[in-house]
Design a protein around this nucleic acid. Structure first.
Length: 425
DNA sequence: TCTGGGGTCCTAGGACCC
DNA sequence: TCTGGGGTCCTAGGACCC
């Protein structure tokens, strides 16, 4: 049986989420900013039409914002994460196998579906169901490989005539779309690869599809070879319905204001460790290595630059926040230098083991407290319940290191006291 | 003044082993 | 004159993704 994938992608996802609970913003330009209100990470159609580019620093568009009355929001991940979960659960009801690829897109396995329903009709069904139940608009691309499904999805978004669904299972249709697609729009071809491909005469996706896969593997990499095969309808990238557990967990942030004193840094690091350990326990894993890093602003040539990191290994794998906080503080002390204006810091966990799957050294006695697991489980349960928060002591030492989020919308769907209120006339 | 955060995979090169 | 060959593991760096 031939393989068929659908890529379902939400349109202007963050901006659409913000508009869901603000009907007064219909047809108004909206942008959403990255952490610390740094740069633009999402735009509504109206904002795109004003020429606002993805990733542009916010301070550079202040004038446009003023002139056109653009609505500006800080990132509200509580809202986007919850809306995403709602969309994904609908998709899981409509397809047997679903890979949640990112917060706003998912691959569906449609192999065998054509026996029951036309692909085009299926795509329209997905669109109307998601729109009806969540208010989010999606586009659907359907093709025999993931890479082609991505391109089909782009086409569905770009050309309104498609009705938001493109069925690219037909070979001739694939070739026609590839011919009008610049090679840098192909999934897997980024800003480094594109100029190098152009230099050897490969300008469109079709040029790439018709290139010699073995030859380009020599010149570039095995990754590009796979892309070429995928463009020709030969599926090389499988659907991963069960997310693989992560091999590293990072928690890092830029600060809202530069951090200059140790207590603030200490508090921030403790917070990051806490979050990283929560993620670790959520995937039921344990880690043996922690990395802690600090850095000043690398962009500013007018002040001294300092960046450093420390690796701390635990005697044996753990998921106990207390052990990692102790390790992180030791690491931080070893790299902390006073007198700098720190911009960013973070922690990284790695060297994972499944619980109980570690062979300890013969001479190192295990000193794990038997209460550790139960304590952490209780902690996670309380913090997830929404009834309250239990935190570790290290953070209370100082509190002016947090993110800048001056334009944050309410958590409409995840906090009782943020519930939207409807006034009936 | 102001420039996100969190991941993955692949490759090359060095250390080391027999 | 001639100075092996094959393998693993680890790390750093580069590329990509959203």
């Amino acid at each position: 049986m031939t393989r068929v994938f659908a890529l379902v992608d939400c349109n202007n996802f963050y901006a659409s989420c913000e508009r869901l609970f603000r009907p007064d913003l219909k047809a108004k330009p909206i942008v959403v900013l990255s952490n610390n209100d740094g740069c633009v990470v999402a735009r509504s159609a109206e904002a795109k039409a004003l020429g606002i580019k993805m990733g542009v620093p916010f301070f550079q568009i202040q004038e446009l914002v003023r002139v056109h009355g653009i609505q500006v929001f800080s990132s509200n991940y509580a809202l986007y994460g919850d809306m995403s979960a709602r969309v994904m659960s609908l998709l899981e009801q409509m397809a047997l196998r679903v890979e949640v690829y990112s917060i706003d897109e998912a691959f569906l396995d449609l192999s065998g579906v054509s026996a029951c329903i036309e692909f085009e009709a299926f795509g329209q069904q997905v669109r109307s169901e998601v729109q009806k139940c969540t208010g989010i608009h999606v586009c659907v691309g359907i093709a025999p490989t993931k890479t082609l499904a991505k391109l089909a999805n782009h086409a569905a978004k770009r050309y309104p005539k498609t009705g938001g669904v493109v069925d690219l299972t037909d070979h001739e249709r694939q070739r026609r779309l590839l011919a009008i697609t610049p090679v840098d729009e192909v999934w897997g071809v980024g800003r480094r690869l594109a100029p190098r491909l152009n230099a050897v005469g490969i300008r469109t996706a079709l040029d790439l599809a018709d290139a010699n896969p073995k030859g380009l593997r020599q010149q570039f990499s095995v990754v590009l070879e796979r892309t070429i095969r995928e463009l020709n309808g030969i599926s090389c990238l499988e659907l991963d319905a069960v997310p693989a557990s992560k091999q590293q967990i990072v928690c890092s942030r830029s600060f809202g204001e530069r951090v200059t004193d140790y207590d603030n840094m200490h508090a921030a690091i403790c917070k990051y460790v806490e979050r990283a350990c929560e993620k670790l326990r959520a995937q039921r894993s344990t880690a043996k290595m922690l990395n802690v890093f600090v850095r000043t602003n690398p962009f500013n040539a007018n002040e001294p630059y300092y960046a450093n990191s420390a690796n701390i290994g635990l005697p044996e794998p753990s998921s106990d926040t207390r052990e990692f906080i102790e390790a992180a503080v030791r690491g931080l002390r070893s790299i902390w230098k006073p007198g700098y204006r720190y911009m960013k810091a973070g922690v990284m966990l790695s060297d994972f083991y499944e619980p109980g799957n570690f062979q300890p050294s013969l001479f190192e006695a295990t000193a794990r407290q038997p209460t550790s697991e139960a304590l952490m489980a209780t902690l996670d349960q309380i913090n997830r319940s929404g009834l309250g928060q239990v935190r570790f002591g290290g953070q209370s030492r100082a509190n002016n290191w947090t993110m800048k989020r001056q334009r944050l919308s309410p958590s409409y769907t995840t906090r009782w006291h943020h519930l939207p209120i409807v006034h009936l006339k």
